[in-house]
């Protein structure tokens, strides 16, 4: 079972992702954060397995947050979920340690597929 942290400044998106995994036996919602600071604080104490990460957020944006999370524990798998769909943003997020990128808007099936793929990916350092 994977423990998921949802990071997004939109309450609508956080609730939607939570609903998608309601009653799911493979993914449980470990926590929700509305900005990068809250996410880093959560990761420091709770160590989720996987994270969905928005990029445009107040206080600390997604790119800075990915960098901080990777410094705490680089085995945490991060899926960027953002409306910023240009190639440069994607490359920047991946170079900081994110493992995948899903463009908003997304369907339930697309999110499930992307998170399943992320969850099955090897942890950093695995051969």
């Amino acid at each position: 079972m994977a423990r998921l942290l949802i990071v997004d400044d939109s309450n609508v998106i956080r609730s939607r992702i939570e609903r998608i995994y309601e009653g799911d036996s493979n993914v449980i919602i470990a926590g929700k954060a509305s900005n990068g600071h809250e996410a880093v604080e959560f990761v420091n104490t709770e160590r989720p397995d996987i994270v969905t990460m928005d990029l445009t957020m107040p206080e600390m944006d997604g790119i800075a947050c990915i960098t901080e999370i990777m410094a705490i524990d680089d085995s945490i798998k991060i899926l960027v979920v953002s409306a910023l769909s240009d190639k440069a943003t994607g490359i920047q997020a991946l170079s900081k340690g994110a493992r995948g990128f899903l463009c908003k808007p997304f369907t339930d099936v697309e999110l499930r597929g992307a998170l399943e793929k992320l969850n099955m990916s090897k942890t950093r350092g695995d051969k």
Partner: peptide, 9 residues
């Protein structure tokens, strides 16, 4: 969110 999608596009 809608405006973000329009801007992102």
């Amino acid at each position: 969110e809608i405006a973000n999608t329009i801007a992102g596009n």
